[in-house]
């Protein structure tokens, strides 16, 4: 064999390597804006709120730079990128798989019963469907629910605009942008919701904070296929050796937060929620499975987090993240909002 053919083979190998590395490194989903008929923000929002949700399957990528404390068992809440698999059968039937490197939390709703299975301790928790005060924890990862909620609550105090089109998970989308009014004292700069042009299902939620180039949070489908799903996905039979528990404590009415007075100060983007912090003597498990429809900061033991602060309102500890601030006072009050610290202290002093 001639030396020349070997040089060729070497170049070929180098090419394979370069292309392979390129494929591995290339970010998914970067693409040009597809042409779509213009739509007004109002039409877009209302079509989102009224659209029928058909069955689909997909993968939701959570790109998190919120700077939250790590919560055991829910790696998706920690900073970084993680993936959640979602199946929806329509009619309140769904399955969510939250993988961790060595386990998985599975949430299944068959329309009448909701199951939560944790592979690490092999427990299945059963709750009747439709009996919940807030969205189930898994749906917080579901952009459909998350975006709908965001639009509904933020519409009055925000500039709502349709900022062109884009492509998410291979689907053409409208970019709905919500920007706080200049009078709003908030940490947030804008919230973007990518809405599927065809199904009008929100596919991606992006939260941008003041003074930060990269999104503080991006939750969105990296992959989605619409169409009927295997019905067996939406049934759950506890496997042998599983501890099955009924979950009365999961209901919103029996949350400790629900027992305690809770008030809000302000409205719109600078709303501050003031409530009672969970007391150490509650005996409630603090493993991240509770209070997920509140801010996630509510779950872990707060006494060890944050910086000490004090003011005319008292003293306590402040926890600052990219998009929210929380103050836990020494007398057991808790104030939280997507606002700077000063807004919280004003609210507490009130």
């Amino acid at each position: 064999m001639g030396r020349r053919s070997w040089v060729g083979a070497g170049l070929g190998a180098a090419l394979v390597g370069a292309v392979g590395v390129g494929l591995l490194v290339a970010p998914a989903g970067a693409s040009a804006a597809p042409p779509l008929p213009p739509v007004s923000p109002e039409d877009l929002v209302s079509s989102v709120m009224t659209a029928q949700r058909g069955p689909f399957a997909g993968e939701v990528e959570v790109d998190n730079a919120l700077g939250l404390p790590a919560v055991p068992g829910v790696p998706q809440l920690a900073d970084g990128t993680s993936t959640v698999r979602v199946w929806s059968g329509g009619e309140d039937r769904g399955r969510v798989a939250i993988p961790s490197p060595d386990g998985e939390r599975t949430l299944v709703s068959d329309g009448t019963t909701r199951w939560a299975y944790d592979s690490r301790d092999r427990t299945a928790t059963r709750a009747p469907a439709g009996d919940h005060g807030g969205p189930p924890e898994g749906q917080q990862q579901d952009p459909t629910a998350a975006a709908t909620q965001a639009i509904a609550t933020l519409r009055q105090t925000s500039t709502v605009a349709v900022d062109g089109t884009a492509e998410v998970a291979g689907r053409a989308v409208y970019q709905l942008v919500l920007t706080p009014q200049p009078t709003e004292r908030t940490l947030l700069r804008e919230v973007r919701v990518a809405v599927d042009a065809e199904t009008r299902q929100p596919l991606q939620l992006t939260v941008l904070a003041q003074g930060q180039g990269e999104p503080a949070l991006r939750v969105g489908f990296s992959e989605i296929t619409y169409g009927p799903q295997d019905p067996s996905l939406f049934t759950f039979t506890p496997p042998p050796g599983t501890t099955v528990r009924d979950a009365p404590a999961r209901d919103g009415e029996q949350r400790p937060e629900g027992d305690r007075p809770r008030s809000t100060v302000g409205d719109g983007w600078d709303t501050v929620v003031i409530g009672q912090a969970p007391q150490p003597g509650d005996g409630r498990p603090r493993d991240g499975q509770d209070g997920q429809d509140q801010r996630p900061e509510g779950a872990p033991d707060l006494s060890a987090l944050g910086q000490p602060v004090s003011g005319p309102w008292g003293s306590g500890r402040v926890i600052t993240t990219a998009v929210a601030t929380v103050i836990v006072t020494d007398d057991g009050r808790i104030a939280a909002g997507a606002v700077p610290q000063q807004v919280l202290t004003e609210a507490l002093a009130r």
Partner: peptide
């Protein structure tokens, strides 16, 4: 184990 079956992390058999 449960008679020659495997329990997946997703709770299926």
């Amino acid at each position: 184990g449960p008679s020659g079956t495997m329990i997946t992390l997703s709770g299926t058999t």
